[in-house]
Structure formats: C-alpha cells, structure tokens
Amino acid sequence: MPINYYIFLALALFCIGIIGVLTRRNAIIIFMCIELMLNAANLLLVAFSKMHVDVNQPTAGSDAQIFVFFIMVVAAAEVSVGLAIIVMLYRNIHSVDVNFLNRLKN
C-alpha cells in the first residue's frame, strides 16, 4: 500500500475536523472535531512508522507508535478537563453555543 493513500486519508479527516471547528456553534461538537484532528495525526504517525522497514532492525519505527500512545494519554486528560469546563459553562449560561462565550465573563 503506498504511503500516499494514508497521507491523503489523514489529510481528509483533518480537514473535515477543521471544517467542523469553523462552521459549528455547539461547543461539544467543536471539541469532538478537535479529537478527530488528533486521530488523523495519529493515523499518519502510525503509517509513517511502518514505512521504513528494515530486516536487520525489526523494531525500527517503534518511537512513532510510542508517540501515538502519549498523544492518546494527553487527549484523555484534555477531554476530562475540557468537558468539565463545558459543563461549568452550561451551568452558568444554560447553553453550549460558543457565540455566547465571546465575553468570557457573566
């Protein structure tokens, strides 16, 4: 499988995430689109880790997969804090519309 296909697949997912962030107004959907972009980057890292295959060095490319693992760890921590912030905002303004959040106060 050529590497191009994976690059273009990851780019398509990333750009769909960008379109979602730019066009939607629901804060939770925007957050989910950010997760989609993170996953596109993860997919590209895994694809590149399988590109340089060396018979003498069977573990070449493991570093990329460790990086993907750490990205997942950071994403999990980010989601817990981000959703807590969204819940707090919903409690204060009774909406998840990001257009109401342009003042950041009251």
Binding site: M1, V46, A47, P58, G61, Q65
Partner: peptide
C-alpha cells in the same frame, strides 16, 4: 510502500 499485515513494530 508501507508494510501492511506484517512486521513486529506494533
């Protein structure tokens, strides 16, 4: 090319 369904990296 990238190696599919093989290799022990992952």
């Amino acid at each position: 090319m990238i190696q599919t369904n093989g290799g022990s990296v992952g």
